[in-house]
Design a protein around this nucleic acid. Structure first.
Lengths: 143, 143
DNA sequence: TTTTAATATGTGTATATACACTATATTAAA
DNA sequence: TTTAATATAGTGTATATACACATATTAAAA
C-alpha cells in the first residue's frame, strides 16, 4: 500500500487520538482552573477515592498510565497535601488515600467536572457521545 | 444529577481520551524506537512535509496543539537537524521545511508507521476503526 | 536452604503539553 | 500621522508522560 504523505495527518490514529485528548483536556483544565486543579489531578483523586485499587501499580493499570508516570503525579498531589501515600505493605505495595483537603477539593471539583462533561455531551449529541465513548474504550483495550 | 465517585473513572471523557491516547502513543513509540523517532515527532515531520501550512500557528491549529507546545517540539526537531525553521516573513510568520536528514528519516519511518497502523486496525476491525476515527474527529471539533 | 522468579516501587533523563507574559510586525482606525 | 487592533512568535514556569535502570519483598523452585 502506498500512503500519501498528505494522508498521514488525517489518518494516523496516534495523532488523531492525541489531538482529541489535547483538545478535551484543555477544556476541562480551563473549567477547573478557578479551583487550582487540573483534570489529570482530578481523575487521580477521584480514582483514589473509589478505593478500587490498593497499589500504585494497580491504579496505573486502571488508568492506563505508565506506573512511573503515576508515581510522579502522586508525588505532586502529596506535596500539595491532597493525598497520602501510605507505608509499604505487601510486596512494597503502597495504598493511597485522600487527605481532608484532598476530599474537600474533590467535592468542589465535581460539579465543575459535571457541567463541563454535560456541555460537551450537549455539543456532540448523545448518540455521538456514546459512540465515541465505546470507541475510546476499544482503542484502549485493543493493545 | 448525582454522580457517584465510582463512576468518574469510567465516564470522564478527558480521562478516557487520555487513556486511549497514552495507550496508542506507547504502541507507536515502541514501533518507531529502532529509528530513534517518536510518533509525535513523526507526525510533525509528516505534516511539515505536506506543505499545507506556512506558519507555526497554522501548523498548530492543524494539529490541534497549543502553538507554544509546537514551538518547543519544533525546536527539538531543529536541534536534531531534521527540520529548518525559516526566517521571519509576513507578520513574523516562519515556514518550516525538512532537511535531507529529516526527509530521510521520515521515509524510513513510514513503513513502520503503516504496519503499526494496520496492526491496530486489524485488532479493532474496520467497522470499529472507522467509528473511532469519526468519533475522535467529532471530539476534536466539538470544542 | 539457597536460588530463582514474580511483584512492587523509585530515580535519572528526555520529551510533550500548555498557560501567562512579553515582543515584534502589519493593518485599520482615529 | 499617531494610535489601536490584529497576527505571529518566543520564554518562564509548571505539569504530564514514559523508558531504562536499580532496588526491595515475597513466593516458588531446586
Amino acid at each position: 500500500m502506498t500512503t500519501e504523505i498528505k494522508d498521514i495527518g488525517r489518518k494516523c490514529m496516534a495523532l488523531r487520538s492525541r489531538m482529541a485528548a489535547r483538545t478535551v483536556t484543555r477544556a476541562y483544565d480551563a473549567a477547573l482552573k478557578p479551583i487550582g486543579l487540573r483534570i489529570t489531578q482530578f481523575t487521580v483523586l477521584a480514582c483514589i477515592a473509589t478505593e478500587l485499587t490498593d497499589s500504585i501499580s494497580a491504579l496505573a493499570d486502571y488508568m492506563a498510565v505508565e506506573r512511573t508516570t503515576l508515581t510522579r503525579n502522586l508525588q505532586l498531589l502529596e506535596s500539595k497535601g491532597l493525598i497520602i501515600i501510605g507505608e509499604e505493605g505487601y510486596r512494597r505495595s503502597r495504598k493511597m488515600r485522600l487527605t481532608a483537603e484532598g476530599a474537600s477539593i474533590l467535592s468542589a471539583a465535581i460539579p465543575i467536572w459535571e457541567s463541563t462533561q454535560e456541555d460537551l455531551k450537549q455539543k456532540m449529541g448523545l448518540d455521538e457521545w456514546n459512540m465515541v465513548s465505546s470507541g475510546l474504550n476499544m482503542l484502549t483495550k485493543a493493545m
